Simulated assay, not measured.
Amino acid sequence: MKALFLTALSTAVLFVSSQAISAEKSARDIVEQAELNAYYSGDDGRSAARMIITDNQGRQQMRQFTILRKDQQDGGVQDMMIFFSRPADVRDTVFRVVKQVNDDDDRWLYLPDLDLVKRISAGDKRTSFVGSHFFYEDVSGRNTALDNYELISENEDSYVLKGTPKHPDNVEFSYYEVVIDKEHMLPIESTFYNDSGEAYRKMEVLKVETVQGYPTVTHSRMSDLTNGGQTEMQFRFMKYNIGLPDSIFSERSLRNPPAEWLQLRD
């Protein structure tokens, strides 16, 4: 009888464990598909972008830049460069990212006034991106391998998942909840919570458009729920599959931007 009870108990534990693994796999499948749609549409892409930064007293400043991006592999290594054009205090600043799979992304910032290429350390990836409410990691995307996921609710329009960092000492949040739109399989809202369970930071997608057949976020907002203030990000002149050469994603392009690939046209 005792052996029978232990066998039944083991079977029950195994069943519960397999259910948990299946749920995690399902949640991860959803997140990974959303990551592909949000960051890997087409083989490469170019876009003009504008950030409007509003502080907690209502004062505004603006940043304009052009993004070039090329995928070495869907869901894998990716090159990205961001070339700032306005205002004068950030003109010719360049942000470069090499997105990795099983390691921290490599990030550099070129500061033209100092003629200095500054490496962004892994510890700084969750700090302000050129004075905005977006973090460096928000721009290139957080690696889904860094978090565990749980599907906490679902309706006919969206999934709601909870992401918990595998290495909580490396981030400032305790967990986050992300809403993924089923129609486009894009993250449309992410809310970050601190150790007290209080929401302190929120990203919202304000507009999605279809560009060359790819659902594309063209307007988003990041808000500071604790201190106030927000940054809106708007995208224009988006093009995919333009044939960007590997050679432009290099340290040389930090000081000598590839002008022919930065020309924006409808």
Rank of each mutant, 00 (worst) to 15 (best):
A3G: 07
L4Q: 10
L6G: 07
L6A: 06
L9R: 03
A12D: 11
A12I: 13
L14S: 13
L14K: 13
F15D: 04
F15Y: 13
V16H: 08
V16N: 12
V16M: 15
Q19F: 11
A20I: 11
I21C: 01
A23K: 15
E24S: 10
S26I: 00
E32G: 03
A34T: 12
A34R: 05
E35K: 13
A38H: 15
A38N: 14
A48P: 02
A48F: 04
A49F: 01
R50S: 11
I53E: 05
T54L: 10
D55M: 14
N56F: 12
G58C: 09
Q60Y: 03
Q64G: 00
I67Q: 03
R69N: 04
R69K: 12
D71K: 15
D71L: 13
Q73N: 15
D74N: 13
G75W: 01
G76N: 05
V77A: 08
Q78V: 08
Q78H: 04
M81H: 00
M81D: 01
I82G: 00
F83L: 01
R86S: 14
P87Q: 12
A88R: 09
V90I: 15
R96I: 00
K99A: 11
N102S: 14
D105Y: 10
D106M: 11
W108R: 11
L114C: 04
L116A: 05
R119E: 12
R119N: 06
A122R: 09
G123W: 09
K125R: 04
R126P: 00
F129A: 08
V130N: 09
V130D: 02
G131E: 11
S132K: 07
H133R: 12
H133P: 05
F134P: 04
F134N: 10
D138T: 05
V139A: 02
V139F: 04
S140H: 00
R142V: 13
N143H: 06
D147A: 03
I152F: 07
I152Y: 07
I152R: 07
I152N: 07
E154D: 12
E156Y: 10
E156W: 11
D157E: 13
V160L: 15
L161N: 01
L161I: 02
N170W: 08
V171R: 02
F173D: 14
S174F: 07
S174P: 04
D181M: 02
K182S: 06
K182C: 06
E183Q: 15
H184N: 15
M185I: 13
P187C: 02
P187H: 01
E189Q: 15
S190H: 05
T191A: 00
T191F: 06
F192S: 10
N194G: 09
N194W: 10
S196A: 14
R201T: 06
M203T: 07
E204D: 08
V205M: 01
V208R: 06
V208L: 03
V208G: 02
E209P: 01
T210Q: 06
Y214C: 04
P215G: 01
P215Y: 05
T216V: 08
R221S: 12
L225S: 04
N227S: 13
Q230R: 15
M233T: 10
R236N: 15
Y240C: 03
N241I: 00
G243F: 09
G243E: 03
P245C: 05
R252C: 05
R255A: 12
R255Q: 14
N256K: 06
P258H: 10
E260P: 05
L262D: 09
L262M: 12
Q263W: 01
R265T: 11
R265H: 09
